[in-house]
Design a protein around this nucleic acid. Structure first.
Length: 209
DNA sequence: CTTATGATTAGA
DNA sequence: CTAATCATAAGA
């Protein structure tokens, strides 16, 4: 690769591994308001993250890492700052940011974003849905950004998918962050009650539910 | 090899 | 509320 990648030059992308080398509980709220950038062969897709969920280490019964390392979740057990992508319900991809500390298998599920660049590209996979629904929900977000298992394990500090510093707030105000329980993990016992979902509650681009 | 199921979604 | 749809993990 060249030294001056288009992504790095146009955005303040996070290139320090240490930024990801923290618990998912700390990284999750920091991701809200940040840009997710995918430099695809067909063009760039950018979106503002508005909803995420934190999945903690092996003790978290809702996390894939709770059942030990397998070929599917191996990326979670590796170094922070990589993308963990898997297929759920046989048809939807879920994109996660692998966190730490160290090799502790924690990750943040990306649940919703507001597409700010490359909307026509995003619509190739999503069709003529309302803009507010384009990347609402983890399966829809992955589809809109063109993220599938081919990107499992991608390095977020150097690869085609990156995270960038928040866009300058137009009005200088930062939206309030709300915490709720996570979606679809009712089987996780006491961990289902933990408020590990972080979102901008009033944002129109959040998922339903 | 067989079988159960899921960090979801759209639609009735 | 349920169907869709299949890779994955666990068990025989």
């Amino acid at each position: 690769m060249t030294a001056a990648s288009p992504v790095a030059s146009a955005y303040r992308t996070i290139e320090a591994r240490s930024w990801f080398d923290r618990s998912a509980f700390e990284v999750a709220p920091d991701l809200l308001g940040m840009d997710l950038v995918h430099e695809t062969p067909a063009g760039r897709i950018v979106g503002r993250i508005v909803e995420v969920e934190a999945y903690l280490g092996p003790e978290d019964l809702a996390a894939h890492s709770a059942r030990g390392e397998t070929p599917r979740n191996a990326v979670m057990f590796g170094p922070p700052g990589h993308l963990y992508v898997y297929l759920v319900y046989g048809m939807h991809h879920c994109a996660n940011v692998v966190c730490g500390p160290g090799d502790k298998p924690e990750a943040v599920l990306l649940r919703a974003a507001q597409i700010t660049e490359g909307e026509p590209l995003a619509r190739l996979a999503r069709g003529a849905v309302a803009a507010s629904r384009l990347a609402a929900g983890p399966g829809n977000l992955s589809a809109a950004f063109g993220i599938d298992r081919a990107l499992n394990g991608a390095d977020l500090t150097r690869g085609p998918v990156r995270l960038a510093a928040p866009s300058p707030p137009a009005d200088g105000e930062r939206p309030a962050i709300t915490r709720t329980t996570r979606i679809g993990v009712e089987y996780a016992g006491t961990w289902a009650a933990r408020r590990l979902r972080f979102l901008f509650a009033d944002d129109p681009h959040r998922s339903r539910r």
